[in-house]
Design a protein around this nucleic acid. Structure first.
Length: 425
RNA sequence: GGAGAGGUGGCUGAGUGGUCGAAAGCGCCGGUUUGCUAAACCGGUGUACGGGUCACACCGUACCAUGGGUUCAAAUCCCAUCCUCUCCGCCA
């Protein structure tokens, strides 16, 4: 979330930003509520002060009569204070509700536009899309022919959008994980395997909203836990409510988790096969940085994502995400779209990874702060997240790009040592 | 799952109703002393919000796991929840 003081002092800028980001957040209402809250806070403080003063006098009262009179006065003051405090709490609740709908500010260079049509292609990968001298199949057909993916069984046991990976697809998934993790460890990331569930508070902190009408999140009944939609949630929560020393940054972590998404409202969108599923595995990168490090870290994350797909020998393009398509927490976001020969009519790019600089938007709610040497007070860290490999979509890209005329799949060079074979089928 | 113990500042750990934002020690920062380092000694050292200042200083309020309650007054008493530790059971 944004800083309350910042919103009040820069209401015009925040409004303008909301317009660019398709956000209907009511800034005027926020400012009005916030002014009321400040006033009420002062009132509560003042009443508290008087009540405290009175309490101290009771200890020093000389006569029982004086004592009783002071007690009565104290009781009245506390009652007033409680009443004012209740109003204050109510105001804070209202403010929070509005505040959390206000998106992050946007990078000045992020393309301005209402949706993904306005995304700006900024680069292409090293490899060109493959040319086939046969009609390429899509991953669903390939998965079925080679007995790699079983959607029917997934639907039977769990429901639409679930699947079993089988046989060499299992090795492929594990190989992709290993490939990504080894690469990231070589870059100084601390690898983790995170919990797949998180407290709702942590979800909120990272900008995810469980139990809303359009939530993407599965909640666990009778608890304050939800299944995570990405390890970004748990990794972001890792340093929640801590104050770090300035010199620990940047902190680079990565985490493997399962990711669960309800995909509410996604009906009708391109969603055949593994592309849009309710559960997949992902290797996620995450960084905590100082404010002046986050721009460079975003470029670095993007570069790593490119290296991972260049290494796999898969064609892709990178787009700079338009303001209207940024979501809540991101200040700037790059998506990497890999070439998927089985998609659309004769192949299309499909999003496989995404990296965002969330500046202090998540850190503020999560309470991730740092202290500068020789300075009073604290500052909020910046957080960034990026997909190293989303396994479901990476598997689509590998299967479709590496299919051969004889129906087999060649295993990308970099995965062979992890798979122990160079061909599927 | 059962029984017990406990959650206090960066850490260890006192504190059982007002004089407590909280002793003491450690750590950390500054200083004195000193060939250097160490030791010793002196001083300082939480966070947030608001007021105040050019900026400091300073003032107010809140915070001793979390949420309620009792009381004029709660770290301290009561209730609930969460978490940690030990033992037993169970289990991968």
């Amino acid at each position: 979330m944004l800083d309350r003081k910042f919103i009040v002092e820069n209401a015009a800028l925040v409004k303008e930003n909301c317009a660019r980001r398709n956000s209907k957040a009511d800034i005027d209402r926020f400012v009005e509520l916030e002014m009321q809250r400040r006033q009420m806070q002062q009132q509560v403080d003042e009443l508290n002060r008087q009540a405290n003063e009175t309490s101290k006098l009771i200890g020093k009262a000389k006569t029982p009569e004086e004592r009783e009179a002071l007690k009565t006065q104290g009781r009245e003051l506390r009652d007033q204070c409680t009443a004012a405090g209740e109003k204050l709490t109510a105001l804070e609740g209202d403010i929070d509700a509005v505040q959390r709908t206000i998106p992050n500010m946007s990078h000045p260079q992020a393309p301005i536009g209402g949706d993904d049509q306005a995304n700006l292609e900024v680069k292409k990968g090293k490899h060109a899309p493959p040319k086939f001298d046969f009609k390429p199949l899509d991953h669903v057909e390939l998965g079925e022919k080679l007995n790699l993916i079983d959607f029917e069984a997934g639907a039977k046991t769990t429901g639409h959008g679930f699947y079993f990976l089988k046989n060499d697809a299992v090795l492929l998934e594990l190989a992709l994980q290993q490939y990504a993790i080894h690469l990231l460890m070589g870059e100084g990331f601390t690898p983790t395997i995170t919990p797949d569930l998180a407290r709702n508070e942590v979800l909120h902190g990272t900008g995810y909203i469980p139990r809303g009408p359009e939530t993407q999140i599965y909640s666990i009944a009778e608890s304050d836990l939800s299944l995570v939609a990405t390890a970004e949630i748990t990794l972001g929560g890792y340093l929640a409510d801590t104050i770090q020393e300035e010199d620990v940054f940047p902190i680079k972590m990565c985490g493997i988790s399962h990711c669960y998404r309800t995909e509410a409202g996604a009906g009708g969108r391109a969603s055949r096969g593994l592309y849009r599923v309710h559960q997949f595995t992902k290797v996620e990168m995450f960084a905590f940085t100082l404010p002046d490090q986050s721009d460079a870290m975003l470029e670095y994350f993007c570069d790593l994502e490119c290296r991972i797909f260049d290494g796999l020998g898969i064609a892709y393009r990178v787009v700079d995400t338009a303001t209207g398509d940024l979501g809540g927490p991101a200040y700037r976001k790059y998506d990497l779209e890999a070439w998927m020969p089985g998609r659309g009519n004769g192949g299309e790019y499909g999003e496989v990874t995404s990296t965002s600089n969330c500046t202090d938007y998540q850190a503020r709610r999560l309470g991730i702060r740092y202290r500068k040497k020789g300075e009073k007070g604290t500052h909020f860290a910046h957080t960034l997240n990026g997909t190293a490999v989303a396994l479901s979509r990476a598997i689509i890209a590998v299967l479709e790009n590496y299919q051969q005329a004889d129906g087999t799949i060649v295993v990308p060079e970099v995965l062979r040592k992890y798979m122990g074979k160079d061909r599927i089928g």
